[in-house]
């Protein structure tokens, strides 16, 4: 999968939830949105990329969210 596109999509999702007042809930919502709308190969590709190259290109909340995505498998 195209990693720059996945990073952009993840950050866009993050940008919506970042405005929410409850940080912890917002992180969960980002993770849930990705979990519920991304094909597993997309999640796996971005997780692989994070594992290989780090998560610097992701916004801080999206990084937190991907910890949850990884846990969920």
């Amino acid at each position: 999968m195209n990693i720059p596109n996945l990073i952009k999509m993840a950050n866009q999702i993050g940008a919506f939830f970042e405005a929410m007042p409850n940080h912890e809930q917002a992180v969960k919502d980002i993770a849930s949105h990705i979990q519920r709308s991304w094909d597993p190969r997309m999640r796996a590709a971005l997780l692989r990329h994070i594992g290989d190259a780090g998560d610097a290109e992701l916004s801080p909340m999206v990084r937190e969210a991907f910890v949850l995505v990884k846990k969920a498998g």
């Binding site: 999968m1 195209n2 596109n5 519920r36 709308s37 991304w38 094909d39 597993p40 190969r41 997309m42």
Partner: peptide, 18 residues
């Protein structure tokens, strides 16, 4: 139980070979 590919994702996956 997992979501599938959306249209633009299908095109990305096609270029990716999956």
């Amino acid at each position: 139980p997992e979501p599938g590919l959306r249209i633009p994702n299908m095109f990305e996956a096609a270029l990716d070979g999956s």
